[in-house]
């Protein structure tokens, strides 16, 4: 097992904010959003207090897996510009403390979900934490270029956990929400990695552009985008999404495909100059198309889930095609 060789000396006293940073608050906010959508879209309604507790458990569970990831990946994080300021590689928090925080919060979140909501949702939450921290972080990330494809399941499960918290079950529509995020993850992350591949190469992470090259990555982004759009539109035909969702998912999907096509035709990822030490999100020659798809992918996912959430909160009826 490739063990993290994190700096062990602490240069400055750790503040509580450093421990909060270990929980990846930005990722947590996305997880909360998608889990809430799953919980609200479920046909049965959970007591609002228990619903809030379920969302809190999912958020804390996600944060715990983030802390475990930062403990194990301290060596990778230290080698990359985007992550070298994180608490462990920066020396503000010891690796053992990050590990302890991750384990304690994992146990508390799963136990509270089980005792307070239901054990099926708690089991799914435990599986998600283990899948992200062990299967993705310790195994896939350093081993295969398919790391974010398979590992994307961990980020895709929160709406299923939210649904399971409300109903104790996980039917097809819950897995459809999961499938949307799962299929969205590869084009999203590969678009980002096209203009950060030097960082990944330096850290020894086998991201797709590092292993297969930029041209192959752009082609795979296009293929995944073609597969993604039907999955995104599908909820409008399964009694989950309404007219607004159909409009957002299909029109947004067309824009997504257009951007993926432009990226495919571009030279993004090929013209990176290793002497160029621009900021991470600065646009290098040829990388503008990659940045455009990356930015739009976030907007597209957010709009689809916000529309589903809005339709169900407003009590709008889903479309009836079947």
């Amino acid at each position: 097992m490739a063990m993290a060789t994190a700096p062990t000396s602490v240069r400055a006293p750790a503040r509580w904010q450093d421990f909060l940073q270990l929980l990846k608050p930005r990722v947590m906010s996305l997880v909360v959003f998608t889990a809430l959508t799953g919980l609200v879209c479920a046909p049965e309604h959970l007591n609002p207090i228990l619903g809030a507790v379920a969302i809190l458990c999912i958020a804390v569970g996600a944060g715990a897996s983030g802390a475990l990831n930062m403990w194990y990946d301290a060596d990778i994080d230290a080698a990359m510009r985007r992550t070298r300021g994180r608490p462990v590689p920066a020396g503000r928090v010891q690796g053992a403390d990050a590990l302890a925080l991750g384990i304690v919060l994992s146990l508390l979140s799963v136990m509270l979900m089980g005792v307070g909501v239901n054990w099926f949702a708690a089991g799914l939450l435990a599986f998600t934490i283990v899948f992200y921290a062990v299967v993705y972080t310790m195994w896939l990330k350093r081993w295969t270029a398919q790391n974010i494809v398979i590992g994307g399941l961990a980020g895709a499960l929160p709406p299923v956990i939210g649904w399971a918290a409300a109903t104790g079950t996980a039917p097809l529509n819950a897995w459809l929400l999961c499938a949307i995020i799962f299929m969205w993850t590869p084009p999203h992350f590969w678009a980002l990695s096209l203009y950060t591949s030097e960082d990944y190469a330096k850290a020894g992470v086998p991201m797709m552009p590092v292993v297969k090259g930029a041209k192959s990555t752009r082609a795979q982004i296009l293929v995944y985008s073609l597969l993604l759009i039907p999955v995104c539109v599908a909820p409008a035909f399964t009694g989950l999404g309404g007219a607004a969702y159909l409009g957002v998912s299909s029109l947004g999907g067309l824009v997504f495909l257009l951007l993926a096509w432009r990226l495919f035709r571009s030279h993004a990822g090929e013209a990176a100059d290793p002497r160029n030490d621009d900021g991470l999100y600065d646009v290098r020659a040829g990388a503008r198309d990659a940045r455009n798809l990356f930015a739009f992918s976030i907007l597209y996912l957010a709009l689809m889930f916000a529309t589903l959430l809005g339709e169900h909160l407003a009590g709008l009826k889903p479309l009836e095609f079947l």
Partner: peptide, 24 residues
């Protein structure tokens, strides 16, 4: 600051367990 954060976290956890028990 860390000690206060741990104390608040523990207190919140205890209150949550109490509340979900009552609600259930």
């Amino acid at each position: 600051g860390r000690n206060i954060a741990i104390a608040v976290g523990l207190a919140v956890f205890v209150i949550l367990v109490y509340v979900v028990t009552i609600v259930n």
